[in-house]
Design a binder for these strands. Sequence first.
DNA 1: AATTAATTTAAACAAACGTTTAATTTAAAC
DNA 2: GTTTAAATTAAACGTTTGTTTAAATTAATT
Lengths: 207, 207
Amino acid sequence: MTEFNEKQIEILQVAEQLFAEEGFDGTSVRDIAKKANINIAMISYYFGSKEKLLESLVLYRISGMRMHLENLYQENISPIEKIEKLIVYYIERVNKNRCMYQILHFELSNKKREINLEAFTEVKNQNLKFLEGIIKEGQEQGMFQSDINVTLLPTIIIGSFIHFQMNKVYYKEILGLKTEEDFENYVLNDLTAHIQKTIKALLVYEK
Amino acid sequence: MTEFNEKQIEILQVAEQLFAEEGFDGTSVRDIAKKANINIAMISYYFGSKEKLLESLVLYRISGMRMHLENLYQENISPIEKIEKLIVYYIERVNKNRCMYQILHFELSNKKREINLEAFTEVKNQNLKFLEGIIKEGQEQGMFQSDINVTLLPTIIIGSFIHFQMNKVYYKEILGLKTEEDFENYVLNDLTAHIQKTIKALLVYEK
DNA sequence: AATTAATTTAAACAAACGTTTAATTTAAAC
DNA sequence: GTTTAAATTAAACGTTTGTTTAAATTAATT
C-alpha cells in the first residue's frame, strides 16, 4: 500500500470529518480544500478524484482498526472478565473511529457507489474468531450456555452503540445529559455497563 | 395537517425510495421526476422545494408509525410474553419503515439540514411508556429484576436490527444467506428470536 | 549554478444542480 | 359555452459541481 505524506493525511482527516458531518454527496471538493487550506486541484493531484479520495480514506482508516486481542486471549482471567474487556475494546474502537463508522454506515447502504470493504470484513472476521474462542472457553468451563449465536453478539454491541450515537439529540434530552461531556461519560460508563450486562445475561441465560 | 393527493403521494413514495438508496444529496429532483413520471417543476409546485419535500415525507411517514399497543397492554398474558410480542411489534415497525429509518438515520447526524422530529420523539416516548408499564408489571410479579434501564431496551432492539440491515452484504455472506428471501426470513425468525432472548435474559439476569 | 522534477496556483471547462418562468393544457365553476 | 382555476409543460435561469489546464513556484538532483 502507498504511504501518505503529511499533506495527504491532513486532507484525509479534513475529508473524514466533512464526509461524516455532511455526507459524501453533501461535501464539495471546495469545502475540503477550504478547510484544509489547500488548492482544489490538489485533491485530484494527490488522490485522482473525489471518489478515489473516499477510497483512500476508507483504506487508510480501516487498516488501523484491527484490535489487538492476542494478549487479552491469553490473560489469566475468567471468560466472563474477558468478555467484559472485549466489549470495552469493541466500544473503544467504534468510538475512536466514530466518523469512519458513520461514513461506512451510509456508504454501505448507498447503491450509487461501491467501495471495497474486504479489509473491513477481514477485521470483523478476525475479531469474531477471538470472540468465538472466549465463548468456547466459557462453555467448556460450564459458565456459558451452549446455544450461543456468536455472530450476533457483536451485532448487539456495535448496533446498540451506534444507534445511541446516531440518536444523540434524543438521548441527551430524555436522559438529561446537558453537556457533551455528560453524554460522553454516559456512553463510556452507563451504556458500556449496560451492554456488558446484556451480553453477560445472554451468555448465562437458560430458557 | 394538509392532506396529500394521489400524485403527491406517488412523488413522496418515489422520493422515499431514492433518498434511502442514494441519500438526499445524492438524489436530484430530476431523478425523482423521471422515476415518478412527472415534470421537474411539479416538485416545486406541490412541495415548494426539495428540502420541503423531505420535510413533508418525514411528516407523512412518521404520522403512520405509532404502534397501537393498548390491546397488548391489557391482554391476559404474562409480562414475559408481552415483552416478546412487543419486540415483534418493534421489529415489524422498523422493518416496514426501513427506508424512512435509513433516511432519518442519516439526517439525524447530518449537520447541514435540521428537520423537525417532534412527532418522532413523541412516538418513541409513547412506546417507552408502554414498555415501562410492562416492566413494572413483571417486577411486581417478581419475574423481572429491579434494576432495569428501560430507556436502553429499545436501543438494543432497534440498534441491533438496524445494524443488521445496514450490514446486509456482510451478514448474507457470513451466514450463508443466498437470496433476499433467505435474508428476510433470517431477520424475521432468527434475529428476532435472538433479540427476544437477549432482552428476556437481561430482564431476569441477576448479578 | 543549472537542470529536472514535484508542488501549487488561478482560471477555465462542461455538466449537473434546484428553482423559476411563461405558455399551454386540462378540469371545474358558472 | 364561456370563464376561471388548477395542473402540466419545455425552456431558461444563475449557481455549484468535479475535473483539467497551463503557467508559476518550490524543492531536489546533478
